[in-house]
Design a protein around this nucleic acid. Structure first.
Lengths: 199, 199
DNA sequence: GTCTATAATTTGATAGAC
DNA sequence: GTCTATCAAATTATAGAC
């Protein structure tokens, strides 16, 4: 692996575990086992590092989700697959959602710049459209705004990892048991959602 | 208002908008319009300030929720009232949930100390118990773990404020419209939950 | 490309006058 | 109780040798 890649990977770990402000360039260099000066040689500033990390993340997740939501399958399959793909992603990147949300909140304008840099947008409009069509077909109850459903779906997917320490504590779950719970939620959340919206 | 109270209020604002690490003692002093030295005179350290703020928050929220979940009303009323009470709280303290969750994640052990200092615990076990009883009565479908329901309920309540900038951006909502949406979610979330669990 | 050394700021916290 | 002045430590970033 190249030095640049090693730095990027080390930075990702440092950022997601500590947040942007608490992340230390010194720690990143230590993790990557390179000299502190090299970080600036490759990436100039702390901000450049974080922008790069966000880009890679957005491209990876949104590409997969877009494929699911624009497929020709029926809405209930889209929900099941979408939930599974999303939860698969967060199982591999458990600390990333909190990092993104923290950064978004800390500096919304900067976050928009980072989104633009990645060239990707979340494919939620595609899902909302699919919900609306299924309402017309009578598959889903009509007293529910598609946008509301999308927000609820994302809430159920993301919150448990955002609040992971609280969930682990209140449910008394080991690291392994927490992962099992996330795995189970692929089916559980999909079924919960489908129960909530079926006509 | 006493100087101590003014400092506490200023610290709360600074912390919830910037997070613990990014919060500056200097900024807190400026917000409170007092000298920087006074912060240490009253609270000794940054950590003392944050512990005090958490305590007040936990006491306020959990007291109200416990009253709802241990009342004698039926489960569907408990859900409706619990959602309303919780959303009322976060409407008045929109940035608090992200601050708490960020801190919890940044330093779980320290967070437990802060919880203990407040003397309060979240009354979620009481709600789960109430769900289990209603399952026995045949009011709620039995293929759903009470703990899972509680987690889903909290997810739907908290996520929209945690991801507020993203929600505002993707739904194109002004500050006022976002508040209206939260207000609407008191009914919407309760109905969504009830649809999802009714036998 | 990689390192050492260090500059330039900024931070939380303290000491001491009033 | 409130202020000024300042310390000691830590942080990002740069300069320059190799």
């Amino acid at each position: 692996m190249t030095t640049k890649k090693r730095i990027l990977q080390a930075a990702k770990q440092e950022f997601i575990f500590n947040g942007f402000e608490a992340a230390r360039m010194r720690s990143i260099a230590d993790r990557a086992e390179v000299n502190k000066g090299l970080l600036h040689y490759y990436f100039k500033t702390k901000e450049t590092l974080v922008t790069q990390i966000f880009s890679e993340t957005f491209v990876e997740l949104f590409t997969d989700l877009k494929r699911v939501f624009t497929s020709s399958k029926d809405i209930f399959q889209k929900i099941e697959e979408g939930v599974a793909v999303y939860i698969d992603f967060i199982m591999k990147n458990q600390e990333m959602p909190l990092f993104i949300i923290s950064e978004m909140s800390r500096d919304p304008k900067q976050h928009l710049k980072r989104m633009k840099h990645s060239g990707m947008t979340p494919p939620f409009k595609e899902l909302a459209k699919s919900i609306a069509q299924s309402q017309q077909l009578g598959l889903i109850r009509k007293d529910l705004a598609p946008k509301q459903f999308v927000l609820n779906m994302i809430s159920l997917i993301l919150f448990p990892v955002l609040a992971k320490p609280m969930v682990q504590f209140t449910h008394d779950l080991s690291e392994k048991e927490f992962k099992v719970m996330l795995e189970d939620r692929k089916k559980d959340v999909a079924q919960f959602l489908i129960h909530a919206i079926k006509a």
